[in-house]
Amino acid sequence: MTRISHHLTDALLMAYSAGTLPEAFSLTVATHVSMCDECRARLGAFDSIGGALLEEAAEPMAGDSLAATMARIRAAGGTPRARPPAPRRTGVLPAPLCDYVGGDLEAVRWRPVGMGVKQAILPTAKGATARLLYIPAGAAVPDHGHRGTELTLVLKGAFLDDDRRFGPGDIEVAGAELDHMPVADIGDDCICLAATDAPLRFRALIPRLAQPFLRI
């Protein structure tokens, strides 16, 4: 497991634990947690807040509810079902992403967006969008700011943003205050998962004209 140095925020983990994130953000959080034991443990801690809240209050069940539940269980086959453990990951994409792509990296249907950059928009509910980005070694994603939140999770390769380096498993959480221009590391092409809950605002004219077509 690679060393991960950029993690999820508490607010994102709490909202994911509570189940209130838009789908595109949930996908990104689930993918990062699949790669990062530190955040898997932190998520476990946030889930235990949910457990503590569950213990707080009780509401009487209907009189026949236990019998009704046992009937449901018998209708579904009765004996508790054992399941073989999940297979070890062999490809690049963690399982939650594979579900959206329909396979590993080779199944991604890339669309060129210029300057060698490619993207594939993933099918998620409205409220936020998720896309895979392919940035050739040394290329830049145009300088942009945000209205909402942008999450960028590295799956392969690395990118640099100012003096910070993001490698596989690292996630950048950018809020409205950040203007930035991520650049793929020189060594290797960079593939990342990016999720936003508002359109990005580009500084330069040309990306702004292209924006409706890129759906960035």
């Binding site: 994911y16 994130l21 838009p22 789908e23 689930a30 998520l43 297979p87 399982a95």
Partner: peptide, 15 residues
């Protein structure tokens, strides 16, 4: 209630 999807993290391969 929300009829939304919430992708789950990958299971640990060893359970």
């Amino acid at each position: 209630l929300r009829r939304a999807r919430r992708p789950e993290p990958e299971d640990l391969p060893w359970g």
